[in-house]
């Protein structure tokens, strides 16, 4: 496994994976979006509004999943000190934040026709909002130090702290929600039938491959900027 920690070796694999990830993602979106937005059947209760789900649900899943990726790579970084693991975490954060933001925006758009208001303190939506804040905190912390390595380590620890807290936060919000607003219907009420399920899975797969492709692009630029930094220092030192 430690063989993968070598950035050169790792990027060799990543570059080989890239065309497939990007191609699959484009293909899945090209097929999935028309099916989801036009050809799939409308819901008998929510009618056309249900189509937001095809973006909302994958975005929510990806928002949580990317945080998981960040937590695992941060742990790998802190335990074995593999820089590449941290670069994966750092490069993932803005993508994860974007997915979470997309989930929140589509949730609000769905809420307006369904609940008559853009924001309801629904348990899942609230949890996603807090997840969004955790992403922002992670990104802000990593950028807050003169010394890059100090920021890397602090951010990695924060990702772990956040991943321990996320289940607690989710449980709390769920409990709080049932205590205060038992009347509010939540997203749990989707009745998924087969005609909706497979376009949904197609969209999930499109989102996942999109994440992999964008992650690889971001990894490339992270490694390049690290090279530029080192070159600058060498210039200054050689003077």
């Amino acid at each position: 496994m430690h063989k993968f920690a070598n950035p050169t070796f790792f990027m060799k694999i990543a570059n080989a994976v890239f065309p497939y990830a990007a191609g699959l993602s484009a293909l899945c979106f090209a097929v999935g979006i028309p099916i989801a937005l036009v050809f799939s059947p409308p819901d008998y209760q929510q009618s056309e509004t249900v189509r937001i789900m095809y973006v909302h649900v994958p975005a929510a899943w990806m928002g949580s999943m990317v945080y998981g990726v960040m937590a695992v790579s941060s742990a790998v970084y802190l335990i074995w000190r593999h820089t590449i693991a941290h670069i994966i975490a750092r490069a993932s954060a803005p993508i994860g934040a974007m997915f979470t933001g997309l989930c929140l925006v589509t949730g609000m758009l769905w809420g307006q026709p369904m609940w008559g208001t853009f924001w309801v303190w629904d348990a899942r939506l609230t949890s996603m909002l807090i997840l969004f804040f955790l992403y922002l905190g992670y990104i802000a912390l990593g950028d807050s130090f003169e010394d890059q390595e100090r920021g890397d380590k602090a951010a990695a620890l924060l990702a772990l702290v956040g991943s321990v807290n996320l289940p607690i936060i989710h449980f709390s919000v769920e409990w709080w929600n049932t205590l205060h607003q038992p009347a509010i219907r939540s997203f749990a009420g989707f009745s998924i039938n087969a005609a909706m399920l497979w376009p949904l899975l197609l969209m999930v797969f499109a989102f996942q491959t999109y994440y992999v492709a964008v992650l690889i692009i971001r990894l490339r630029s992270e490694l390049l900027s690290a090279k530029i930094r080192t070159a600058r220092f060498n210039l200054a030192a050689a003077e």
Binding site: D147, Q148, F233
Partner: peptide, 8 residues
């Protein structure tokens, strides 16, 4: 060997 802020 020691690196501080990307510099040896």
């Amino acid at each position: 060997n020691c690196q501080r802020g990307g510099r040896m």
